[in-house]
Design a protein around this nucleic acid. Structure first.
Length: 442
RNA sequence: GACCCCGUCGUCCAGCGGUUAGGACACAGGCCUUUCAAGCCUGUAACACGGGUUCGAUCCCCGUCGGGGUCGCCA
C-alpha cells in the first residue's frame, strides 16, 4: 500500500563567487540523479545576493560547466538578485507579528531585520544522517534582511525554496549546522519544511577539504585536461554513494535508475585523481571515434598543429584510442601520424639506432616496403617477416629501427598498422630522412 | 573552546551478529608481444583502541583517541 509520492522538486544553488568545483558538481549530480530517477524537476538557482563578491562571468561559467557535464535543468537559472521583491514582504510580516525586530541603526542609519529566536531544541530529520538534534540554547537571533536591504543567506534560501516548491534540499554537509536555523524560519513563516539530505564532504589526499592547493579541482580544469563528462559523472557518483555490491562502471541511465539517498555515505571521501583518470581511459575506449574527434578539436587549438581533416583524425583515434587515458594525451601520441615533421627522441635513437648495421637494415627494409603490393597491413607484415627470416634475425631487429624512423619514438602502436596509416610515400620519405640522419652522424 | 558529524586495505566502495572480510584504483610479479600501452592471471594490503551486550561482534551500546564541519548583516 505505497501511495505514490508526488514528483520531487530539487535545486542546485551555487553562489557565483568561485568556479564550479568537483564538490559542487557532485552536489549538483546527486540532485539531478534524484530528480531524474523519480520524474521530478531539477532547478538551477544562482545565489548572488552578496553584491560585492558575486561575479557575472562566474555565473556564466558555472552554467556552462553544468551543461558540459550534461546535468540539464528544468527551471532556471533563477537569480536571487532579480527576485528582491520576494524577501522584504516576508520579513515585514514577521516584523508586524512581533516575531522579528529591527537592529540598532548603523553609522549610516540603516537597520537590519532580525528574527527573535527563543531557546528551544531543534531536531533535523535528515535523509542521510538520520535525526540530528541541536540543543538550541546557542542559537542566536537570525538576520533576515541585512542593513543594505539584501536578504541574508538563510532567509533567502528558505523563502526561495518555499516559493519554488522545493521538496528535497540536497546539499553539502557544511550546511548541516544551518539547517536548524532554517527550520526555525520555516516555522516562523508558518511553512512546511522540505526534506533535508546532507552530503559528505570531498577531501584532498591529505584529508583536508579539497581546495586549489590540491591542484586543479574546477570543472573547467578537468574539461581542459581531457576528462570526458560521462567519466566524471560516473566517478563523482561513486564519491559518497554506491549502489551496493561491486558495480562501478555505470552509465547515466544506470545511475539514474540506481540512485537513492538511503545509500549515500556519511563519511567524507578523498578525491582520487588517478582513479578518475583510469575510469576516463575506460570511457575513451568505449567512445565512438567520431565523438572523440569532436571532443579533441578544442584541445588541439593550443598545439600549433597544421589543420587535420576529420577523417584523418578518426584514423588516428582508432589507432591510438586504447592508449589514451585523457584526451590531453592525444597530441603527443598522435603527432607522428598527423603532422609532417617528427623529432627523433634521443633515448629511442640511443636504444635502437646505435648498431653498426642499422643503415643497412633500414635500406633493406626500405626496399621491401617499396616493393610491397598492395601496400597493406597484411602484405607488409608478411614481407617484412620474410625479410627477417632471410637474414636469420627476429622481427624486432628490423622493426625497432623502423619504428624510430617512422615515429621518432621508442613506443608506439604496431609498426605494420603505422605503415598502412602513413602510406607508402610518407613511410619511404621517413626512412630516407632517417638514413640521411644516420649518414650525417658517422 | 562549544555544538554536531564521521572512523573497513594507501584511496574509493561492499558488508547491515556467524564471511577464508569482497570488488575497484594504485603497487608488485607473470602471460601475451616488434616497443609502449591495453588486455588477461596472480600477489601484497584493512575492520583505530578499550570496555560492555551476546553463545558469538567489523556490525549493537558506552568511553578514549583520531579526522572533519559550523559557530558572519559570506554563501
Amino acid at each position: 500500500m505505497n501511495r505514490p509520492e508526488p514528483p520531487p522538486r530539487v535545486r542546485f544553488a551555487p553562489s557565483p563567487t568561485g568556479s564550479l568545483h568537483v564538490g559542487g558538481a557532485r552536489t549538483a549530480l546527486f540532485n539531478w540523479l534524484f530528480a531524474r530517477g523519480r520524474g521530478g524537476a531539477f532547478i538551477l538557482r544562482i545565489e548572488d545576493t552578496d553584491r560585492q563578491r558575486s561575479r557575472e562571468d562566474l555565473s556564466r561559467e558555472i552554467i556552462e560547466e553544468l551543461a558540459w557535464l550534461g546535468l540539464d535543468w528544468d527551471e532556471g537559472p533563477i537569480f536571487q538578485s532579480r527576485r528582491a521583491g520576494l524577501y522584504l514582504p516576508a520579513a515585514e510580516e514577521l516584523l508586524e507579528r512581533g516575531a522579528a525586530y529591527r537592529s540598532e541603526p548603523d553609522t549610516e542609519g540603516k537597520t537590519a531585520i532580525i528574527l527573535r529566536v527563543p531557546p528551544a531544541e531543534i531536531t533535523v530529520p535528515d535523509r542521510v544522517y538520520g535525526a540530528v538534534t541541536v540543543s538550541a540554547a546557542e542559537l542566536k537571533d537570525i538576520v533576515l534582511i541585512k542593513s543594505d536591504g539584501s536578504p541574508a543567506y538563510n532567509f533567502a534560501c528558505v523563502v526561495d525554496d518555499h516559493d519554488l516548491g522545493i521538496t528535497h534540499v540536497i546539499r553539502g554537509d557544511d550546511h548541516l549546522p544551518n539547517t536548524p536555523k532554517q527550520i526555525i524560519l520555516y516555522r516562523a513563516l508558518g511553512w512546511e519544511p522540505p526534506a533535508f539530505a546532507h552530503l559528505p564532504l570531498i577531501l584532498g589526499p591529505d584529508k583536508s577539504p579539497l581546495s586549489k592547493r590540491h591542484g586543479a579541482t574546477s570543472l573547467k580544469a578537468f574539461r581542459e585536461a581531457g576528462i570526458l563528462p560521462d567519466a566524471l559523472v560516473n566517478y563523482l557518483s561513486l564519491l559518497g554513494w554506491s549502489p551496493g555490491g561491486d558495480r562501478e562502471l555505470m552509465n547515466r541511465d544506470e545511475l539514474v535508475r540506481e540512485f537513492s539517498l538511503e545509500k549515500v555515505s556519511r563519511k567524507a571521501a578523498v578525491f582520487d585523481h588517478q582513479k578518475l583518470v583510469w575510469m576516463n581511459g575506460r570511457y575513451i575506449q568505449e567512445a565512438a571515434p567520431a565523438d572523440l574527434v569532436r571532443a579533441l578539436r578544442p584541445l588541439l587549438a593550443g598545439t600549433g598543429w597544421e589543420p587535420v581533416p576529420d577523417g584523418r583524425m578518426e584514423e588516428a583515434v582508432i589507432l591510438l584510442g586504447h592508449r589514451l587515458k585523457t584526451l590531453a594525451d592525444f597530441p603527443d601520441l598522435a603527432g607522428f601520424c598527423l603532422q609532417g615533421e617528427i623529432d627523433y627522441n634521443p633515448e629511442a635513437v640511443a636504444k635502437y639506432w646505435s648498431g653498426e648495421d642499422v643503415p643497412e637494415i633500414l635500406a633493406e627494409v626500405r626496399g621491401t616496403i617499396a616493393a610491397a603490393d598492395p601496400f597493406a597491413r597484411e602484405e607488409l607484415e608478411a614481407a617484412l617477416r620474410g625479410l627477417a627470416e632471410r637474414r636469420g634475425v627476429k622481427g624486432g631487429v628490423l622493426l625497432h629501427p623502423l619504428r624510430v624512423a617512422l615515429t621518432g619514438r621508442k613506443d608506439s602502436p604496431g609498426v605494420f598498422e603505422i605503415l598502412s596509416l602513413l602510406g607508402r610515400e610518407t613511410s619511404l620519405a621517413r626512412i630516407d630522412r632517417a638514413a640521411a640522419f644516420l649518414a650525417r652522424r658517422t
